[in-house]
């Protein structure tokens, strides 16, 4: 039953995600953490970190890891199916029936309203996650540097993830040696 509920939560989210997978973060948090209380905040941000650090579609990774945390392997498949299905249904319908959706003025107007909302919905979880990362004087520059390098220099985010993993392993080695 939990699998079905997971499927349904992600299905609803998938049907209302505009502007890509990052826009899903707020919705998934609202549904799974705030409303259903299936995950606590820490578990949720852990899933987001994993989802972003691995290759593949971010939204699918996010569904897989939160689904797994909540209800194991079957949960992850239920969540993934829910996240992908609305897209597939809508695209197949649109591709079959509508020739030029972006030529319609009403569609343009509606998206003019949705776009700034989506940016805000991506920004808010980014800020919440910063708070969760418990930054101090030694670490506050990490997100700043990552953000600037990607925005201004167009460096692939992948290098930052790899650097964080290698840095973390070295850090762990030092900690273990000391103890």
């Amino acid at each position: 039953m939990l699998v079905l509920k997971l499927f349904w939560e992600f299905f609803k989210i998938g049907a209302f995600t505009f502007g890509g997978g990052y826009a899903m973060i707020s919705m998934v948090k609202t549904a799974l953490v705030d409303k259903r209380k299936w995950l606590n905040e820490d578990e949720f941000w852990e899933c987001i970190t994993l989802a972003q650090s691995l290759p593949g579609v971010f939204a699918i990774n996010m569904a897989l890891y939160t689904g797994f945390k909540i209800s194991g392997k079957s949960g992850s498949f239920g969540a993934m199916a829910g996240a992908a299905l609305p897209s597939m249904i809508i695209i197949v319908l649109v591709a079959s029936f509508i020739q030029n959706i972006n030529g319609l003025k009403t569609v343009k107007d509606i998206f003019a309203g949705i776009r700034p909302c989506v940016i805000a919905l991506i920004l808010v979880p980014g800020l919440t996650m910063l708070k969760k990362a418990k930054l101090d004087r030694r670490t506050f520059w990490i997100p700043v540097l990552a953000c600037l390098a990607v925005c201004l220099l167009g460096i692939s985010p992948m290098y930052f993830i790899i650097a964080a993993i290698i840095g973390g392993i070295i850090w762990a080695k030092i900690v273990i040696r000391k103890s």
Binding site: T49, L130, P143, F160
Partner: peptide, 23 residues
């Protein structure tokens, strides 16, 4: 634990960058 502790702030920065680039 340690790699995760470093990955979390990086991912936060990346998510914010996604929002910034859409502006």
């Amino acid at each position: 634990k340690k790699p995760m502790a470093l990955m979390t702030p990086v991912v936060a920065g990346l998510i914010i960058s996604a929002a910034v680039m859409m502006c």
